[in-house]
């Protein structure tokens, strides 16, 4: 089997349900061997994209490639190499967790029984309980154990940790890291930003069925704003005219402002000219980064990547 360098390649994907346009030209590229974060507000089309990738929904237009195959036409062959964990696992009330894990394993490329046992222990899951009696978190564990113990190349995880306790969340992170070390690819849709920050090599952010940003976290940080507050030797002047400066407030010699991170140079130079007594500069938190992208801005779907950031009208919660 030749390994392609791109595990998932989606471009211009459109999917409509009646009059609703769930996906409106979405792009998504996941390299083989990376952990890719898939982010977006509720209802932005993440699960729809994943269902198209799994061949459960049929795309209206656009090209979609999964492990070098067509997710609709080659669904069955591809699914041998893919494990999926939905955000809301529903089990059969009269089947035990162990039975379901083994069933899912057999429906994929097979199950590593040694790893299955080890995972059951790490996730502290009792496989003899019946589906009806599991809590939300334990239902997620059933699907997670099945996915991590499956012999597959690609894991598609759709908000997989909803309901897990912090301890189990830690086990989950270890497992994803192990998967990456074993050369597997992971597409991780999640709202838990610390999880994304800890695990993902690259992220794609979508909103209203369109990809608004894609890249490494460092890249994305670079595209956002840094908060600067300074006490100067004298009253500043000309700061508001500088490119990339937002939310400027001057009170005597005290200055607070936000600046697009790639325009930080100019601001610091101007401050230094006035003379700096004290200075704090805070890099953007991940929260701020995502909030900027998630925020609803009709008519400006482009986000930071294509210049919307320069407008400086957005109010950022901080």
């Amino acid at each position: 089997m030749t390994k392609a360098t791109t595990a998932i390649s989606v471009s211009g994907l459109v999917k409509t349900f009646g009059r609703t346009r769930a996906l409106d030209g979405l792009d998504l590229h996941v390299e083989t061997g990376e952990v890719h974060g898939f982010l977006g507000p509720n209802g932005s089309g993440k699960s729809t994209t994943i269902r198209v990738l799994l061949g459960l929904l049929r795309a209206d237009s656009g090209t979609t490639r999964l492990l070098d195959g067509d997710p609709w036409r080659d669904a069955v062959e591809l699914h041998r190499r893919v494990a999926y964990v939905p955000g809301d696992v529903t089990l059969w009330r009269n089947l035990s967790g162990g039975e379901v894990i083994d069933l899912y394993g057999r429906l994929r490329g097979g199950l590593d029984t040694r790893r299955r046992g080890e995972l059951l222990e790490r996730f502290e899951l009792d496989p003899t309980k019946k589906g009806r009696t599991y809590s939300k978190g334990n239902r997620q564990k059933v699907a997670l154990v099945a996915a991590f113990a499956s012999d597959v190349e690609l894991l598609i995880l759709d908000e997989p940790t909803s309901g897990l306790d912090p301890l189990m969340e830690g086990v989950f992170r270890d497992c994803v890291a192990e998967e990456r070390d074993r050369g597997r690819t992971v597409l991780l849709s999640s709202h838990i930003l610390s999880e994304v920050e800890a695990l993902c090599d690259r992220v794609s952010i979508i909103r209203r069925g369109v990809t608004v940003e894609s890249g490494s976290l460092t890249d994305l940080r670079h595209l956002t704003r840094t908060s600067v507050s300074a006490e100067l030797a004298d009253e500043p002047d000309g700061l508001s005219g500088l490119p990339g400066v937002h939310d400027l407030s001057v009170r005597g010699r005290r200055v607070r402002l936000q600046v697009d991170t790639d325009k930080l140079d100019g601001v610091l130079r101007r401050l230094a000219e006035t003379g700096v007594r004290s200075l704090t500069s805070t890099p953007p938190t991940l929260e701020e980064l995502f909030l900027r992208h998630y925020q609803d801005e009709p008519g400006k779907p482009g986000g930071l990547g294509n210049g919307a950031a320069a407008d400086g009208e957005e109010v950022v919660a901080s």
């Binding site: 009269n94 089947l95 035990s96 162990g98 039975e99 057999r106 309980k129 009696t133």
Partner: peptide, 23 residues
């Protein structure tokens, strides 16, 4: 409801349908 087996012998969609519909 009683506890079930820790390991399953359901080996595919037919086995699953059997478990779901036999009752």
């Amino acid at each position: 409801t009683r506890p079930g087996p820790a390991a399953g012998r359901i080996n595919g969609p037919y086995g699953l349908a059997w478990r779901l519909q036999r009752g």
